[in-house]
Write a protein that binds this DNA or RNA. Sequence first.
DNA 1: TTTCCTACTTACTTATAGGTAAGTATACAG
DNA 2: CTGTATACTTACCTATAAGTAAGTAGGAAA
Lengths: 191, 191
Amino acid sequence: MQAATTREQIINQAFQLMLQRGLNGFSYRDISEPLGIKNAAIHYHFPNKMDLLSALIAENHQLLRESTSEFMAYGGPARPQLEGLFDYTLDQCGCGRPICMVGALAVDYKDLSDNIKRANDSFIHDSLNWLTKVLETGREQDEFHFEGPAKRKAVAILATIQGARQMARVESMDILTSIFAQIRTDLGISS
Amino acid sequence: MQAATTREQIINQAFQLMLQRGLNGFSYRDISEPLGIKNAAIHYHFPNKMDLLSALIAENHQLLRESTSEFMAYGGPARPQLEGLFDYTLDQCGCGRPICMVGALAVDYKDLSDNIKRANDSFIHDSLNWLTKVLETGREQDEFHFEGPAKRKAVAILATIQGARQMARVESMDILTSIFAQIRTDLGISS
DNA sequence: TTTCCTACTTACTTATAGGTAAGTATACAG
DNA sequence: CTGTATACTTACCTATAAGTAAGTAGGAAA
């Protein structure tokens, strides 16, 4: 944590704010004040808010890759990979990032630049392809039991997790555990 | 549509904006300009934005009650009630209301007044209780087949629908149909 | 030792947000 | 025909947003 550059501090602060309040829910002041810097310092590193947003999306990709590299590998037993996704989601919510990047962007989706939309899209499709593969192999290996195409099931589960995070904000984080339990049950997992 | 009062026009316009862009995503100007009135006219009917928001939440309750009175009755066959919920969701998304009120409020949840939080909470719990009942009776009547407590399943399904709407904004509305199909499949419904 | 680059700060600008106070047109009541 | 309530408009205010231009402190390079 020590010796973080101003640039890194800005990204960290903005990332936290973004995933708590959405793009329109925070200002440059909310970033600069707690860091003890001036607004213009942010503009120095990120000329406008879209540049900052790009950096946040990159940060999100990076963070996901780091946090998931162990369990997000293709192949092997499917169950721990799914559990890894659940744990990751719980971790994120637990450390003050209640909404995920996709959810935060969905509200302001109309005024996003094309390259940001593309980055977001590719993020979704990467996640989707990974989960589809996990479900497919899980079904082949008799770990999971479900009807319908694996891809469709993957979309449904991602949507469920997305919605679960939203509901957790309004209700409590317990709801996440409960919903994950139901997803397991629906996949025919005993415990 | 004819002879709508200014107050009604304001609510309609604001409702649409709210469910497209979220609370912080629109301004008084976005309401007044298309209606050909002045900002102060809005302040006359709704002194501040929270008053307007209260009216929008009431509108949302009202609309839901109207649109769902036929299928949201307790008792009777469960399947059409569930289908009613799916149709309602599709309708709302189809007529330019991509995010639901709960989703729109979730982002700005922190700066809502207590009575608005309460109104939102009670809305969620009403929906939840209704769906729980539908699932319970559906299971008793052998229409639905699922494991786990009905309430937990209801939470999971509502979360799925919530997330589905969010994903539909980014992807396309087809994803809704697909996710609903998977929910049916997971409930052991043939077609 | 001067020059230049990096990483900022100071001091603005412009736009827009929500909100208010005072004035006005219309309708209806007495 | 006078008053009063309703439903606004005009004209403002204050705060804050994103963004910019010019200045500066400190280190490295020539």
